[in-house]
């Protein structure tokens, strides 16, 4: 098997995640889809690392995880405060930028 298949899998997962972001209205699910996209990227990085025979790709994936952790903390905090004020976790409810 060619390890490029891992890249195709990563592309597929990324696309599914992106589509999910566009389709779902629940902010939590949207957020999960973003995590899915990040994971797909990580898979690609790890595969690249293996293909190039050095560990830099894994380092990048590691940093992605750290940043994702930070992002999740803040993002979930935002969702919680949004839910508190609006009693809803729908991203469509926060459409204040409309004219």
């Amino acid at each position: 098997m060619n390890p490029v298949n891992y890249l195709y899998l990563a592309a597929l997962l990324f696309t599914i995640g992106a589509t999910g972001v566009l389709i779902r209205r629940n902010a939590i699910v949207v957020f999960m889809c973003i995590e899915l996209m990040l994971n797909a990227c990580n898979l690609a990085f790890v595969t690249f690392s293996r293909m190039h025979g050095n560990l830099d790709g894994q380092i990048i994936a590691f940093f992605t995880m750290v940043v994702a952790a930070a992002e999740v903390v803040v993002g979930l905090a935002i969702i919680v405060s949004l839910f508190r004020s609006r009693h809803s976790a729908s991203v469509d409810d926060a459409s204040l930028m409309k004219l």
Binding site: P3, N42, S49, Q58
Partner: peptide
């Protein structure tokens, strides 16, 4: 599991 298979043992566990 895929990370582990790709030789990224640390990342697999961290994941």
């Amino acid at each position: 599991v895929f990370y582990l298979a790709n030789g990224a043992y640390f990342l697999g566990i961290v994941q």
